[in-house]
Design a protein around this nucleic acid. Structure first.
Length: 364
DNA sequence: CCCATTTGACCGGT
DNA sequence: ACCGGTCAAATGGG
């Protein structure tokens, strides 16, 4: 990982790591008896750290150079990583696409035959609405939308496509952020028992094609995600016409830190509500085991913060503002300390504090 | 019967 | 015209 990085990248990584460490410290100082000064100090440090990282990002290669790319991304040596790929200039026209919903891609490595524990279960319930053979790929692409689209107008969708090379690798492209008030956390909470809708094997369900039969079975109902990469794309910050789902700016949710679990889930909250709002809770949650991680649903926290579900609607327009005006105040009732990034291109080095999470989920 | 998936048709962009 | 994305009728499972 080192060898592929240039100095700048290393520095950047270091900056982020430092930010992470500081955040950890801050976490420890969230106890009531800790001094406010210390917290402020740490917050300041964190902010500056990330600011540095960001400025590096902005000044560094404008196009291809994705400083995050090298260390963790595709190679499976590192099971998970988060990549915010701002440009995603694969097709130069992505930005002009009619859909201006935020879009990002995860590459999910799954283990076939492994236990029925968590496929790339992202905590939301999806409904498949289409499947298509894509030019130049061996496997069809599945189209999913949020189950609550109709009921709540949640426009989140995702596409799942199996990798050509590594059939245990799936590329999941998410589009739009969930605005549904009750994602399937309920389902997740009872992941192991809930039989009905809500918790489906969704994701990777079926990708059968004619030629698939012979290969290993296509329906890793519950494949285990072991490696994953996330890229963000389509950061059109201006036009979010139909967008329910919007990629939220990164904002620290330093709510009234009195909330019981704030300390513990501090980063989770940040991630879930902020930068990684669109990401899978599972992905976000550091919990070791799948089943337990399920309980750490973002919505828990959101609720505990009083961040109601319904304000997602309002937040959208606000988000637009936020996105276009870098330092506007978050619409959220919380957040005295927000770190809003104009174009959410920040990476929260994913393995926050759960190394075990990564090492424990390898394919056999 | 309800709901999710399947799958060919349809549509809009290029 | 082609291609990717979505729709919607048909189908199937619970």
């Amino acid at each position: 990982m080192e060898r592929t990085m240039n100095l700048e990248q290393k520095t950047l990584i270091n900056e982020l790591i430092q930010g992470k460490e500081l955040a950890k410290q801050l976490k420890n100082h969230l106890q009531p008896f800790s001094s406010q000064e210390k917290r402020n100090f740490l917050v300041g440090k964190i902010l500056s750290s990330y600011e540095k990282a960001l400025s590096m990002l902005k000044t560094s290669g404008t196009d291809q150079s994705n400083p995050f790319e090298s260390p963790h991304s595709l190679d499976n040596t590192s099971p998970r990583s988060v990549i915010f790929d701002q440009d995603y200039s694969k097709h130069g026209d992505v930005f002009k696409k009619r859909k201006v919903l935020p879009r990002w891609t995860e590459q999910v490595k799954v283990c076939m035959g492994t236990g029925p524990e968590g496929p790339h279960e992202d905590g939301y319930s999806w409904r498949k609405y289409g499947q298509k053979d894509i030019l130049g790929t061996n496997h069809p692409r599945g189209y999913y939308r949020c189950t609550h689209r109709k009921a709540q107008g949640c426009l989140a969708t995702k596409q799942v496509q199996r990798s050509d090379q590594d059939s245990s690798l799936f590329e999941v492209t998410y589009r739009g952020r969930h605005t549904c008030s009750r994602p399937s956390q309920l389902a997740m909470a009872s992941a192991n028992s809930l039989p009905k809708h809500g918790l489906r094997a969704e994701n990777i369900d079926q990708f059968r094609t004619h030629e698939e039969q012979d290969q290993e079975e296509e329906k890793p109902k519950q494949p285990q995600a072991t490696g994953l990469e996330v890229k963000t794309e389509d950061f059109d910050t201006n036009t979010i016409e139909d967008g329910r789902g919007i990629f939220q700016p990164f904002s620290f949710l330093s709510t009234p830190i009195e909330s019981e679990n704030v300390g513990r889930d501090f980063f989770s909250d940040i991630v879930e509500n902020g930068i990684a709002g669109p990401f899978s809770p599972r992905f976000v949650s550091p919990a070791g085991s799948e089943s337990t991680s399920l309980s750490v649903s973002p919505w828990h926290n959101m609720n505990s913060f009083g961040l109601a579900n319904n304000n997602v609607q309002t937040s959208e327009s606000d988000l637009t503002d936020i996105l276009s005006t870098p330092n506007s105040v978050t619409n959220s009732p919380i957040g005295d300390l927000d770190l809003t990034l104009d174009k959410v291109d920040l990476e929260l080095d994913f393995p926050f504090d759960s190394p075990e999470f990564f090492s424990s989920s390898q394919c056999p």
